[in-house]
Amino acid sequence: MLGFRLAAQKPPDATRITDAVVMRFEHIYEVDPELMSEHIQQQDLPAWDTLRIVESRWEHLAWMHDHFADSVVSGEELLKEIEAEG
């Protein structure tokens, strides 16, 4: 029986974004692992778990919008309207 294998979910190599931040998935940032070496060790997360956390985050934000109002007005759309009107 095949069980979970971390190796099969190995995240991509990191790309440096700033002095303190790296990125492995598009728009998903993480603290430079070098900064998590003295007091807190960074955990190994399989790729699916990182993506699950990010998706859950979007779900939470959508829920919070919906909790307070029936709809959300887009600033980008309003700016286009204003621009079109001159």
């Binding site: 109002a69 007005v73 600033g75």
Partner: peptide, 9 residues
């Protein structure tokens, strides 16, 4: 009354 719409910028 529950707001119909929210806007943030």
């Amino acid at each position: 009354k529950r707001p119909e719409a929210e806007f943030s910028a």
